[in-house]
C-alpha cells in the first residue's frame, strides 16, 4: 500500500464533473508533480484530497487508512496539508498570526515555537517581516508565507498548488529550491504546477492531468523527454 493512494476519484460541481475518475499514488519521501493546463482539475483534486470538496465516488487512502469521509481538520491532523492556489494568505493579519494559524490543529506550544523557528530558517525574510500585515508583503514573500504556514501544521504530505504562479523567474527557482530542501527533511510533496519545466526538474515522478483524467504517468525525467509533454507543456 502506498503512502497516499487515490482510486477512481470523481468530483462534481453541480452538473460539471471536474474529476472523471482520477487514480494516482504518492510514495513516502517523494516529490510527485501533477501538471496540466488550466481547468484540468488540478485544484479540484487538491481540494478533494484536503476534504474541502466531497468526492461523488472513489477512495483516498493515506498510510493505510481510508480518509475519504474525513473532515479537513482531521485530515490536517493526520498530516496532509495544502498551500492553496493564489497565495491565499490572511492579508489583514500579521506574518506571525498567519503562521500561528497554520498550527491551528496543534496544541503543543513549545514544539510550535520550534517549528516557527525552522520556518524562519527556510525563509529568513519572513522573520524580518514578522509583525507586518501579510497584505503588504511582495508576491514572493506571500508565497513563502503560504508555504511556511502550511509547514506549521507539521505535515507528512505537503500539497502545493501552483507555488510559482505570477512570480519572477528568479523567485520561482528560489521557491523550488526550498521545496526540494523541505523534501530532503523528510516531507513528502505533491506539487501541482503549470510551470512544468521547473516542476519536472525537482520531482521524482509526475502525472499529466487533462480534462479531469490522468492521461500520462511516468518518472519526471521520462516525462520531461516525452514528445507530447514537450509540445503541450514545455513549449516544444
Amino acid at each position: 500500500m502506498s503512502f497516499l493512494q487515490v482510486d477512481n476519484l470523481v468530483t462534481r460541481y453541480g452538473a460539471i464533473t471536474a474529476l472523471q475518475g482520477v487514480s494516482l499514488r504518492v510514495e513516502e519521501g517523494e516529490i510527485v508533480t501533477l501538471i496540466g493546463a488550466n481547468g484540468a482539475g488540478k485544484t479540484t483534486l487538491l481540494r478533494t484530497l484536503s476534504g474541502i470538496l466531497r468526492p461523488a465516488t472513489g477512495a483516498i487512502t493515506f498510510r493505510g487508512e481510508n480518509i475519504t469521509p474525513w473532515q479537513t481538520d482531521r485530515i490536517v491532523r493526520a498530516g496532509i496539508v495544502q498551500s492553496p492556489e493564489g497565495r491565499l494568505v490572511f492579508r489583514g493579519m500579521s506574518v506571525r498570526e498567519n503562521l500561528q494559524l497554520g498550527a491551528y490543529t496543534r496544541r503543543d506550544r513549545d514544539e510550535i515555537a520550534k517549528d516557527m523557528g525552522h520556518v524562519f530558517e527556510l525563509f529568513p525574510r519572513l522573520k524580518e517581516r514578522l509583525n507586518q500585515s501579510a497584505g503588504t508583503l511582495s508576491g514572493g514573500e506571500q508565497q513563502m508565507l503560504a508555504i511556511g504556514r502550511a509547514l506549521m501544521s507539521r505535515p507528512k504530505l505537503l500539497m502545493l498548488d501552483e507555488p510559482s504562479l505570477g512570480l519572477a523567474p528568479l523567485l520561482v527557482r528560489e521557491i523550488f529550491r526550498i521545496v526540494e530542501e523541505i523534501n530532503r527533511e523528510g516531507v513528502t510533496v505533491l506539487l501541482v504546477e503549470q510551470n512544468a519545466r521547473q516542476a519536472l526538474a525537482i520531482a521524482h515522478r509526475g502525472y499529466v492531468l487533462q480534462t479531469g483524467q490522468v492521461v500520462m504517468e511516468d518518472t519526471a525525467a521520462a516525462l520531461a523527454q516525452n514528445e507530447v509533454v514537450r509540445k503541450a507543456y514545455l513549449g516544444g
Binding site: 490536517v76 493579519m93 501544521s153
Partner: peptide
C-alpha cells in the same frame, strides 16, 4: 479573511 485558506489549514 479567507474562508478557503482557513479551511485548508483545518
Amino acid at each position: 479573511e479567507d474562508e478557503i485558506a482557513a479551511e485548508a489549514l483545518g
